[in-house]
Amino acid sequence: MASAHARIPRHSSARAMLRATGLFGLAFVIFAAVLLAAGKDPIRAYRDILSSTLVDRYGFSEVLVKMIPLMLTALAVAIPSRIWLINIGGEGQLYMGALFATWAATYFAALPAWELLPLVAALGFLGGGLWAAISGVMRAYGWVSETISTLLLNYVAILIVSFFVFGPWKDPESANYPQTAEFVAAARLPTFFGTRVHLGLLIALVAFIVYHVVLTRTRWGLEIRAMGGNMEAARRSGIAIGRYVLVLMFIGGGLAGLAGVGEVSAIQGRLRPSLSPGYGYTGFLISWIAGGNPYGIVASALLMAVITAGGDVLQMAHRLPGSVVNILMALMLFVVLARRRVP
């Protein structure tokens, strides 16, 4: 897969954003037709979705909770994509981050929180980063395209996690159920305002700011942008491309790993095989529909989180089958993907 040619189109103006909003609107209209065909009232359905997600305090907090892993896995795609690397491995990197974090939380359980938490987060970052770096190395040496290797390694990572939670790490107190023992309190990421919104949100926001500042304000970022503009020219001007491939893959994977840290340490409190309902893949989609734009990523992650949380409401209040959520999400994506490109 000649990834060097498939780059994320970048939006250039607020007008593009406005157009994207219009496209999402179109998708909602199409889905409204689907709802009407199923004999449901689309306006009531949309009102219920919004009133239980954005305008409700708890609902909004849960939307934020859902957005954390989506934003981090989307960044994991967006950062390497700056030099045309395609990372479909967010899911595997998330699992590897969770695995490393769990190891830290279990092995250093005696440490106080202010030492243990940074360690858990750092190891999570390392886990995801190293997993992505495997693909980075293979790409830097020109052996295997990172598109292929990250996709394949997703499955390997999930199976490795299964191996540990079904085997050596299984909690003897959990009826032989495949999960590790609960983390000690010191290994749990703090949450805010009595909701499940956790430190991961701040980490994600900081990551966004750093991403933005590094790209626009530093020499290093300028080099990356130069490479993003023209790989061949960058090589001729003496930039060590291989090192950038490795570093950007490592950082991207590390951020996906942090998404895994959030899920095990803040949400679940232990490692289980059903850690992620496909955050890595949704993050990939988010990054692409946002064109790698930081604001676009936040907005698209918000939209995906609202659709997922709103899906519960469609089922509860409108007796629609759960599968309808997949259809809504797909329609949304179809419309956005099929948009006319902004030159």
């Binding site: 598109t147 989609l285 692409w288 797909a330 994506l333 179809f334 993907l337």
Partner: peptide, 8 residues
């Protein structure tokens, strides 16, 4: 984009 379209 092919990969994103495929996932959708």
């Amino acid at each position: 984009n092919q990969l994103a379209s495929g996932l959708a």
